[in-house]
């Protein structure tokens, strides 16, 4: 039954992929400015432009271009960058590792902080602990991450000199260096998520802890913590799972800014540069990988739902 459910969810992913890539492909072509022009700069004569457009396949109908791209993409060939000539798949994969490490750390931050604040706030509603937690819940949502990033860099890197202001060390190369380099970007990236989880989890915990079966649990003589963990959390986490799933997509988007502030060579920077240069194959590759990632996370969220709430029909 569960296998069948998994299989069917996976089948949904395929049309989603085709539709999203087609939409993205068309959107990219709608960006004003022509890659041939961007490439040639002031050497752009009409003949050279026409020649380059033919060479790049830009003179073909959109659907033909898309079909050609899709056929090679299915075989794992995402083409080459129009500018540096490097293979798109290689470039994307090398960046993906970087962004993935940052985003995963940010997710962990969000989750831990969110849980912490949510639980402290429901322990004594309307106490100072609750206010502090709610304050951070609002602050995290309201502060733009790039601004938070700049402030933290000035404080922790420039003034105190504790953490590097820029750059990235992979966890595989140097775990301590990784922690140092990822701390600030992941925190800034995760602040919004932490706030979201705090607010979401707080309200759903309050609702759950107010319900009859919790009262029953208390009256059976159970203590506060077992009630929260065993009975409350499992039910309260359902909406949070949805939030976390959405957060992942948000964070992938937000890395564009954070990677720029911290000069981290990840997917975000690659995406921005590809847009500015009109490096369409590269941009298409970046977007494809991001879309696949989001779809995977959605898939995991769906499955988790089933695991957390047995009532959800699997067929």
């Amino acid at each position: 039954m569960f296998i069948k459910f998994l299989f069917r969810r996976l089948l949904y992913v395929i049309p989603m992929l085709i539709v999203t890539t087609l939409v993205v492909f068309s959107l990219i072509l709608l960006i004003p400015g022509d890659p041939a022009l961007a490439l040639l700069g002031d050497n752009a004569t009409d003949e050279k432009l026409a020649q380059l457009r033919t060479q790049l396949g830009l003179d073909q109908p959109v659907l033909v271009q898309y079909w050609n791209w899709l056929m090679s993409a299915v075989q794992g060939d995402l083409g080459r960058s129009l500018f540096t000539g490097e293979y798109v798949s290689e470039a994307v994969i090398s960046r993906l590792g970087v962004t993935f490490q940052v985003v995963i750390t940010a997710m962990i931050f969000s989750f831990i902080l969110g849980m912490f604040f949510a639980i402290t706030s429901i322990l004594k509603p309307n106490s100072w602990m609750d206010y502090v937690a709610r304050f951070f819940g609002t602050l995290g949502t309201a502060i733009p991450n790039f601004w938070l990033a700049m402030l933290l860099v000035v404080l922790f890197s420039v003034n105190l000199g504790w953490l590097p202001a820029t750059g990235f060390t992979s966890v595989m190369e140097h775990p301590i260096g990784f922690l140092k380099s990822v701390l600030l970007p992941a925190f800034c990236l995760g602040a919004f998520g932490a706030a979201q989880i705090t607010r979401q989890l707080r309200s759903s915990l309050i609702e759950v802890l107010d319900s009859d079966y919790i009262r029953t649990a208390y009256s059976k003589g159970l203590l506060l913590w077992p009630v929260i963990w065993k009975h409350g959390m499992r039910n309260a986490l359902l909406p949070v799972v949805t939030t976390v799933g959405l957060m992942f997509g948000n964070m992938l988007g937000a890395t564009v800014v954070i990677e720029s502030v911290f000069a981290i060579p990840g997917m975000g920077q690659l995406a921005v540069n590809s847009i500015l240069q009109r490096d369409f194959p590269m941009l298409q590759g970046v977007v494809l990988v991001m879309v696949v990632l989001v779809l995977i996370i959605n898939f995991i969220t769906d499955v988790l739902y089933g695991v957390l709430d047995p009532r959800i029909e699997l067929d």
Binding site: V153, G161, P164, A165, T166, G167, S260, V261, A263
Partner: peptide, 18 residues
């Protein structure tokens, strides 16, 4: 050579000794 498009990032990197 480290590529840093944002000037604040370059400035911070210089001030923090990177």
């Amino acid at each position: 050579v480290k590529i840093m498009p944002d000037e604040n990032t370059r400035l911070n990197a210089l001030k923090s000794g990177q």
